[in-house]
Design a protein around this nucleic acid. Structure first.
Length: 954
RNA sequence: GCCCGAGUGGCGGACUGGCAGACGCGACGGACUCAAAAUCCGUUGUCCGAAAGGGCGUGUGGGUUCGAGUCCCACCUCGGGCACCA
């Protein structure tokens, strides 16, 4: 490293060698060049092109990962890098602890914003995307992140999406075997059919099927399949959306356009086959409990039973979680879309039923849900039979019963379900109790205990004693346990072939097609019969064709009728292709939809491991090293995955699903992609509006006595995201210019715990700047630039402070508690400052350890100080300081003494003092004696080294 | 409606059931300076008190405990997720 260019001594400016933003900038860019030139953060692989014979991959590895960023055109604001700084500090700390750390960052660069920008400007999305990536790389390089640049990939690279397509084909060429509980290759299914070991659904033999019929059977088993089912059609975006991408208001997550339900033929991934494993394996992951809960809720597993009610139109199957209440089922409700509705409808009621069905169909999902919870419905005129007691139950239809969940039909037990209760009351249907609620239930409602539900104000949900529930061959009466009642009735249903226990999920299969341009093309072609075929692996990647016009055919956001026309459908020369799929060259038509943006992020972390591999998406040995299980029962996966909670269900669920398929097919050794997940908080900001509601520039607002003003006008303050329209954006570039990257990093880490959201406050950054300036001044003379470090031993007190700090900082960094680690470093620096103020020099042992401990947080400053202490090379791999246990032992400890639980005095004792010695010292203390007032303690509690509590009677 | 998470000085935040408020911002005072900035030293939860000292204090109300910010119950407020899921 070269020395600073000496600045001319200026009588008015700061001393020439003060750690100012401009000096920081010079130091920072110098070390950034050094790291780049020396490949400082290149992590060696155990095999392949990224292996390093001079630096074999050690056994202690650590894979640290940030959530895949989208390269936005707007650039970064100070909120974006929070997680990246956190992972960088952790990664750097772990390198100093001897780990082989893999840390890199790529770009999730397909997606709607780039495409919409392209539509607006006419510039190809690839051009725009690459510009954005370049700008983001520049902003992040300036931050000093220790990434391995060789591993940075983009989903839009042909060499990347080739493998996204390859993985799609693996999913396409496989089926889920429920008996084995895992995915298997489709050829194994073919073999089972051919051998006769498996029959087709309609019972015909494999040999009796035409080739086309065989194809249809296989296609119906694949993990990704074509479905002509109701989808979320968003004309405003010109595409369909996954359920997860539609808000509760029935609008698109992106853009907030109306979404309509309609039937379309689309690719769908069979994620529901993995529902159980996706729930059960959560227990083996080190994830925040709320995120696990959100995934469990999203999958929504519920155990219950399917029960068949006979009716004039045949058996009606219902799903219920409470088969024990069957005797209280007094009517049935079918979804208006239920296939049996026309057959069940009595001619006298047909007009009314059809009107209701039509009205329900006309309502968008949102309207159906937005209804004021009023329970509408109509009677079909049909009566079904309750299988447990032969009672006739009227069959109704109502739109609160959803066709997409369970069987689309319910048995209504109004005495045990509030919704059914309200429906029964509204339509004059009978209510029969199957449980006697406990006395306090009645007491709380101010009525006398009675089994007559006509007197009940609402349904009873809870544990009561079963009543009214017996027939000739089974009785539940008298049972007090719901579980036992369920099990008894389930046994009876099974024995009489009336029903069976079953499990239902809220999770639906994943809609995988998008009618867009800027996404991965499907490696799929259609033959003349319209059946899909995989493009051979040798033909990958299927390149996205160049287009001059990226726009899906313009549609009105409220036009729910017109069909989507994907941009690729217009490239006629691309859609027609001649291929030899084993039966000679033939003409095929390409799939013109593209994959959703989630596709690339379902597996990107594995491409970091082996980014240049042209033979496989990742070398199995490399995958095993970085992501393999760490022992029996361990899922394997990334060691630390940091990102925001907004991906709790979508990305994290899809990525887990793909990973499990790859595991089942033997492509990876890990069962889960992300073993430990950590949710960083958000940096938010204040925004200010004037009396007209217009946002005013936040940086120009002044505060006085709790009121804020701008340009002499009082403005209102609100708190939330940073955004252009709120005029409250602060960028990293501004921070680099004003303070330098290290100070900016330090502030982001010091302002609170990594997982908490907090408000940005530029004014507070100066605290961290003062700290680093003071530290700099403790090593370098501000006027001469000379070192003031001395080789003499540090005084005992300072040395002890140093070793206490080492222990604390070590533990804090390991636990991602960077804010308290920084506080401890500041305390040590304050002690060092006092020493420098009195002695004029700083002991080398303290400055060196400070440089090391600081370097994960402020890597440039750490390197610079380390260098100025006379070391060569980088501090990156210098072992973290170790504390000397002998220096951690205190001579004396101060222990508070409480009398009746209130602190009255403090005693000083040896750290090894016994309980008796504590007590003796406490009783001898004047203030304690005064507090005791001459009384003898009736009870004494001594926690050696922590507290003494003397209890005296009042 | 249901399910999570969070409420601590003027502000951001510390805190294994054992001295609440580490560290930082801001504020106040002092040193240095012709002066200002910067820097350094000190004070800073609140109330009573000249002081010594004492009372109160971690959203509210109860409880457990020798001892509660921390554990339990109920409630309030804010943030997030799901929302007719049978």
């Amino acid at each position: 490293m070269s020395e600073n260019p000496p600045t001319a001594a200026n009588s008015s400016g700061p001393p020439p060698h003060r750690y100012t933003a401009s000096l920081a900038a010079r130091i920072e860019s110098r070390w950034q060049d050094f790291w780049e030139d020396n490949g400082t953060f290149d992590a060696p692989n155990p095999a392949g092109p990224l292996a390093d014979p001079g630096r074999p991959a050690g056994s202690e590895k650590l894979f640290v990962l940030d959530m895949f960023p989208y390269p936005s055109g707007a650039g970064l604001h100070v909120g974006h890098p929070l997680g990246y700084i956190g992972t960088d500090v952790f990664a750097r700390y772990k390198r100093m602890k001897g780990f082989n750390v893999l840390h890199s960052l790529g770009y999730d660069s397909f997606g709607l914003p780039a495409e919409q920008h392209a539509i607006a400007t006419g510039v190809h999305p690839r051009v725009n995307t690459e510009q954005n990536i370049t700008n983001m790389r520049r902003q992040l390089r300036r931050l000093g992140l220790g990434h391995d640049p060789r591993r940075s990939v983009s989903t839009t690279d042909e060499s990347f999406y080739r493998w996204t397509q390859w993985i799609f084909l693996q999913i396409f060429e496989s089926w889920y075997d429920p008996a084995a509980g895992r995915a298997r290759h489709i050829n194994e299914l073919v073999a089972e059919f051919e051998s006769g070991g498996r029959r087709t659904d309609d019972g015909r033999g494999w040999a009796d099927l035409s080739p086309g019929e065989r194809r249809d059977v296989l296609d119906s088993h694949r993990l990704v399949y074509l479905s002509d089912a109701p989808v979320n059609w968003c004309p405003g975006l010109g595409t369909i959306l996954a359920n997860e991408e539609v808000t509760a208001e029935g609008r698109s997550d992106i853009g907030n356009y109306p979404v309509f339900k309609r039937n379309m033929k689309q690719w769908v991934m069979r994620i529901t086959a993995y529902a159980d494993r996706l729930i059960d394996d959560l227990d083996r992951l080190d994830w925040p409990e709320p995120i696990k809960l959100m995934q469990r809720n999203w999958i929504g597993r519920s155990e219950g039973a399917r029960v068949t009610f006979s009716s004039p139109a045949g058996g009606i199957e219902v799903f219920t979680t409470r088969p024990d209440t069957l005797f209280g089922a007094t009517f049935m409700v079918l979804s208006p879309e239920h296939p049996l509705v026309p057959a069940l409808t009595a001619s006298a009621r047909r007009a009314e039923v059809e009107a209701y069905v039509a009205a329900a169909a006309a309502k968008a999902d949102a309207d159906r849900q937005d209804d004021t919870k009023e329970k509408t419905g109509v009677f079909t005129g049909a009566t079904a039979v309750n299988p447990v007691n032969g009672a006739g139950v009227p069959v109704w239809i109502a739109d609160y019963v959803l066709m997409g969940y369970g069987t689309g039909a319910i048995m209504a037990v109004p005495s045990g379900d509030q919704r059914d209760f309200e429906f029964a009351r509204a339509h004059g249907l009978p209510v029969v109790a199957t449980q006697m609620p406990p006395a306090d239930w009645f007491a709380a409602r101010g009525i006398e205990p009675t089994a007559d539900c006509a007197l009940w104000p609402g349904a009873f949900v809870g544990d009561g004693t079963v009543i009214n529930s017996s027939n000739d061959s089974v009785s539940l009466d008298g049972l007090t346990s719901v579980a036992e009642a369920k099990s008894r009735v389930n046994d009876w249903l099974a024995a009489n072939s009336l029903g069976e226990p079953t499990t239902t999920y809220r999770l639906r299969d994943w809609l995988f097609s998008r009618q867009r341009y800027w996404g991965e093309p499907f490696p799929v072609v259609y033959d003349e019969t319209g059946r899909p075929h995989a493009v051979p692996e040798s033909e990958l990647p299927v390149l996205l064709p160049e287009l001059a016009d990226f726009k899906p055919t313009a549609l009105d956001p409220d036009d729910s009728v017109s069909d989507p026309v994907p941009p690729l459908a217009r490239v006629k020369e691309w859609t027609r292709v001649t291929l030899d799929l084993g039966d000679g060259p033939r003409g095929y038509t390409r799939e013109v939809n593209v994959m959703p943006q989630w596709a690339g992020s379902c597996w990107y972390e594995m491409r970091y491991l082996d980014p240049t591999n042209g033979d496989a998406f990742v070398d199995p040995e490399v995958e095993r090293y970085w992501m393999g299980p760490r022992g029996a029962g361990h899922t394997g996966g990334v060691d630390l995955y940091v990102g925001g909670v907004e991906h709790a269900v979508l990305h994290l669920l899809y990525a887990r699903f793909w990973h499990k398929v790859l595991f089942d097919l033997g492509h990876v050794s890990s069962e889960e992609p992300f073993h430990r997940l950590y949710n960083q908080g958000y940096i938010q900001a204040y925004a200010y509006r004037d009396a007209r509601g217009q946002a005013v520039p936040a940086s120009e607002v002044t505060e006085k006595d709790g009121t804020w003003s701008w340009a002499g006008e009082t403005v209102a303050r609100e708190y939330g995201k940073m955004g252009k329209s709120l005029k409250n954006i602060v960028t990293p570039d501004e921070m680099y210019d004003e303070f330098g990257a290290d100070t900016f990093r330090l502030y982001e880490m010091a302002m609170g715990p990594l997982d908490a959201s907090r408000p940005w406050n530029t004014r507070d950054v100066v605290g961290m700047q003062r700290f680093v300036q003071r530290l700099w001044r403790n090593a370098v003379d501000e006027d001469t630039g000379e070192s003031i470090v001395s080789d003499g031993a540090a005084p005992d007190g300072l040395r002890r402070a140093l070793h206490r700090t080492i222990v604390g900082v070590d533990a804090d960094m390991d636990g991602l508690r960077f804010n308290t680690a920084i506080a401890k470093l500041i305390e040590l620096n304050n002690a060092l400052t006092q020493h420098v103020n009195t002695h004029g020099t700083a002991p080398r042992e303290v400055v060196a350890a400070m440089a090391q401990m600081l370097s994960p947080l402020c890597p440039h400053l750490g390197e610079e100080l380390w260098h100025r202490l006379g070391n060569s090379g980088t501090v990156t791999y210098v072992p973290f300081p170790q504390a000397d246990p002998a220096l951690l032992v205190e001579d004396t400890v101060e222990v508070p003494v409480q009398v009746n639980g209130k602190v009255r005095s403090r005693i000083v004792v040896s750290p090894s003092a016994t309980e008796q010695e504590h007590l003796a010292a406490a009783l001898a203390d004047e203030k304690v004696q005064a507090a005791l007032g001459g009384k003898d303690p009736v009870k004494t509690i001594v926690v050696p080294g922590r507290t003494v509590n003397l209890v005296v009677g009042k």
